[in-house]
């Protein structure tokens, strides 16, 4: 867990430093009062300091044994499948429209629990149902392809 804490701390340090550096390109103070750089400088500065303290705390703190950052085995598979499913959805929607990428995403999340010949129809039917509910019944515009799905 210490590795995770330090890594999160480092990402936050990098992010706050980036914002802080950019903040200086805005006016800190104008003749009327604080400018558009005032708040960002203080906030990202505070975030930077707090992230550093967080890292120090993580390094000095006691480390509980046996705590893993990620689970092992099947649970890890389920987590990765859902993250990959959403990522694939984002990539596949522009060429394929809504229904097929959504079905692929659902399939990836279902196939760990059900056999493939159950997962595929389940994913397709649910995906199509979502299209009908959200587009036809609720009037939202979904990213459909030229054929309308």
């Amino acid at each position: 867990m210490r590795t995770l804490k330090v890594s999160i701390g480092l990402v936050l340090v990098a992010f706050s430093a980036l914002i802080l550096v950019q903040s200086f390109s805005f006016h800190y103070y104008t003749k009327y009062g604080p400018g558009s750089g005032f708040f960002p400088i203080w906030m990202s500065g505070a975030l930077l300091v707090l992230s550093l303290v967080f890292i120090v705390e993580a390094i000095l703190g006691k480390e509980a044994k046996g705590e893993e950052i990620l689970p092992r085995g099947k649970s890890l598979g389920y987590i990765l499948a859902s993250v990959a499913g959403v990522a694939l959805f984002i990539l596949l929607v522009p060429p394929l429209g809504f229904t097929i990428p959504c079905a692929i995403m659902l399939f990836l999340m279902l196939v760990g629990f059900y056999r493939w010949y159950v997962s595929i129809p389940l994913a397709l039917v649910s995906s199509f149902a979502l299209l009908v509910i959200f587009q036809s019944l609720l009037g939202l515009s979904l990213p459909v392809n030229a054929l309308g799905f």
Binding site: F89, G112, F113, Y114
Partner: peptide, 16 residues
Amino acid sequence: RILYPIIVAIAVVGAY
């Protein structure tokens, strides 16, 4: 195992 895919799918539609 049924609930989570539904939540994710609705969240994806909602975010879009």
